[in-house]
């Protein structure tokens, strides 16, 4: 590791925000499963590493009936997997969290870190997008909340300013009759990144939301597609239509994991499987 950083571990949020505002080349450390790889490979030159794990404000992990679930920046992926609320209310998120990387990494990696790293193939964003997640952001100047669908701006890029830190992600209470699913294609059954992953939600009003990863420069919430599908109504026919139509809404590339044609094809197959399982229709 070439970086000769100083290690800072503030105990209150304000202290962290002031430090961020006043020091360039500061990198935020939560789980470290992306950051420490970048440090090990000398991909970044860090002057300061700001460890946020001792800030109690970021430990929040609280569900309020009728409102929703707030997931703080220090909540690890395995804490999501083990949470009764996530299991019962946000099934797709539980499924995505349980296939993310390996047991060892899930014990360190955080949900907020997964979105801040902004990999187009990250497993968690589709399952957050279908629940209209919002991101709570803080800086020394104040707080703001943005919808997650506007948070990603490119490959490994977000709308976060350098002096800002994500405090938490908020998921509205989906209500009772809600169900969701996350399916992904990988090259092998064990530990692999998603070649393409689809999350679908069927809410209490029978409306569908669809999100997808690894087929564009950012994870995508496919609102046009789901609007059209909802207008048609859910049937075996419309599901088959959507699994073809989805190919017009994505821009996959060819890389080491798959060709763009395969990604496009699998996007359709996964969508069909997701909707089939959610509706109980045989497609």
């Amino acid at each position: 590791m070439l970086s000769q950083f100083e290690y800072i571990k503030p105990l209150v949020l304000d202290e962290a925000l002031t430090f961020l505002a006043e020091h360039e080349q500061t990198y935020i450390l939560a789980g470290g499963t992306d950051l420490i790889i970048m440090l090990n490979k000398n991909m970044i030159d860090a002057k300061y590493i700001l460890d946020v794990k001792s800030i109690p404000d970021l430990d929040v992990f609280k569900f309020t009936e009728g409102e929703g679930l707030e997931i703080g920046a220090n909540v690890t992926v395995n804490e999501l997997v083990e949470s009764d609320v996530v299991q019962s209310k946000y099934r797709a998120l539980c499924e995505a969290a349980s296939v993310l990387a390996t047991e060892q990494l899930r014990n360190r990696a955080t949900l907020v870190g997964n979105i801040c790293n902004a990999s187009p193939g990250a497993d968690l964003p589709p399952s957050l997008l279908i629940y209209d997640a919002t991101v709570k952001i803080a800086s020394a100047k104040g707080e703001r909340s943005v919808p997650l669908r506007t948070f990603f701006t490119g490959v490994k890029k977000t709308l976060l300013n350098k002096d800002e830190l994500v405090v938490s992600v908020f998921l509205p209470d989906p209500g009772k009759q809600d169900n969701s699913i996350y399916l992904r294609q990988t090259r092998l059954r064990g530990h692999d990144l998603s070649t393409v992953g689809v999350a679908c939600r069927l809410n209490g009003d029978g409306k569908v939301a669809i999100a997808i990863n690894a087929v564009a420069i950012t994870p995508l919430l496919l609102t046009d597609l789901s609007d059209q599908l909802n207008a048609k109504g859910l049937s075996e026919e419309s599901i088959l239509w959507a699994s073809e139509e989805i190919k017009k809404h994505i821009k996959p590339i060819t890389d080491v994991r798959a060709s763009k044609e395969y990604r496009s094809h699998m996007a359709g197959i996964l969508l069909k499987r997701c909707l089939g399982q959610l509706t109980g229709k045989e497609v």
């Binding site: 420490i36 390996t102 014990n107």
Partner: peptide, 26 residues
């Protein structure tokens, strides 16, 4: 050295972690 292989796994506070992705000071 990047959390892929698990050869450096240790148990930290009851949970397995890859020690190549944890700073000692953490």
């Amino acid at each position: 050295g990047e959390g892929e292989c698990g050869a450096c796994t240790v148990i930290m506070n009851g949970r397995p972690v890859t020690s190549c992705l944890v700073l000692a000071i953490e």
